[in-house]
């Protein structure tokens, strides 16, 4: 990391001139709502309520079984989507590099199409994939394998799997693109050196590609965690804002949405705020990883 210019000590206010617009809007549309959210979490539920109730919402959440379910589901969902998407995207990127050069842009674009599609359109496409007996997934994969068709959106044993499949369908191509871009930036010399040391392809992958891709993989993981915990569209689209049968697909963000719908703003904010420590932990992890790579 290059040291910042020494010369600029001369004018101390110049950097702030450049930062001012960003900081101003950051304060206005991020910091103030955040503080507003914390405040709301300490107030009674209901529209236009301002009665201070202290930590009551948090205490209620601690013994709320649905909240615990939502947290557990979100953890499983996020972890599973990383475990599915990252290796798959690495593999696809590898295949794209091995295939004909001239086809590569078109193929990458095709794989990435779901990430370019608005979530509300994805809703319709997913319904077709997951829908009852006639859904694509059952018709093309489950039934030809001689298995009973799965009711992906109703069977509590499969809802979470359905959600993970949906995220994988949406994001794998996008992540493949990032990994591919990263792979193309790795200097060839490293591979030549590895070949001189007669490292097998597998070892080249583990000892050259993966370490070089660390910043990309970090980005991918962070993106998926943030998406898993807070982005609304995925689960909302598939289950219409419900938690599914027996709450098997209830995620934290869905729970926030449900509380908001009934004007339980206090509880909704308390859920959001209680996710903050988790995000801070993630922040700390990112920064320390960044330092190690730098």
């Amino acid at each position: 990391m290059p040291a910042a210019d020494q010369r600029t000590q001369r004018v101390r206010w110049t950097p702030f001139l450049f930062l001012l617009p960003f900081l101003f809007l950051l304060l206005l549309f991020w910091l103030i709502p955040l503080v507003g959210g914390v405040k709301m979490s300490l107030q009674a539920n209901g529209l236009g309520q301002a009665e201070y109730v202290g930590l009551a919402h948090y205490k209620a959440l601690a013994s709320d079984e649905r909240f615990v379910t939502a947290l557990r589901n979100s953890f499983i969902y996020t972890l599973a989507s990383i475990v599915v998407i990252v290796p798959l995207a690495l593999w696809l990127a590898h295949l794209l590099r091995a295939t004909f050069r001239r086809l590569r842009p078109a193929l990458t674009f095709a794989l990435l199409l779901p990430a370019l599609t608005p979530p509300s359109v994805l809703a319709v496409l997913f319904l077709m994939v997951f829908h009852g007996r006639n859904g694509l997934l059952n018709q093309l994969f489950v039934m030809p394998l001689g298995l009973e068709p799965v009711d992906w959106l109703k069977d509590p044993d499969f809802i979470l799997t359905g959600l993970v499949l949906q995220t994988a369908w949406r994001w794998t191509g996008f992540m493949t693109f990032f990994i591919l871009a990263g792979m193309e930036g790795i200097p060839r010399v490293y591979y030549e050196a590895a070949r001189l040391a007669t490292a097998s392809r597998w070892r080249q992958f583990w000892h050259v590609t993966v370490p070089q891709l660390r910043p990309v993989l970090l980005f991918v993981a962070v993106y998926l965690v943030v998406d898993g915990f807070s982005l609304f569209s995925g689960a909302f689209v598939l289950l219409g804002g419900s938690g599914g049968t027996a709450d098997a697909g209830l995620l934290t963000i869905t729970y926030v949405f449900q509380k908001t719908r009934f004007f339980d703003y206090g509880t909704a904010s308390a859920i959001s705020v209680s996710l903050l420590p988790l995000m801070l932990l993630l922040l700390w992890g990112c920064l320390s990883l960044r330092r190690r790579t730098a």
């Binding site: 950051l26 549309f29 991020w30 103030i32 709502p33 955040l34 507003g36 959210g37 405040k39 709301m40 962070v222 943030v226 807070s230 982005l231 609304f232 963000i253 926030v256 908001t260 703003y265 909704a268 904010s269 959001s272 996710l275 903050l276 995000m279 801070l280 993630l282 922040l283 990112c286 920064l287």
Partner: peptide
């Protein structure tokens, strides 16, 4: 960095009233 990790969606209601 924190801005990435704490997305606006979580605080949509206070943002809306603001």
């Amino acid at each position: 960095v924190a801005l990435i990790l704490v997305p606006r969606q979580l605080f949509a209601v206070p943002l809306f009233s603001w």
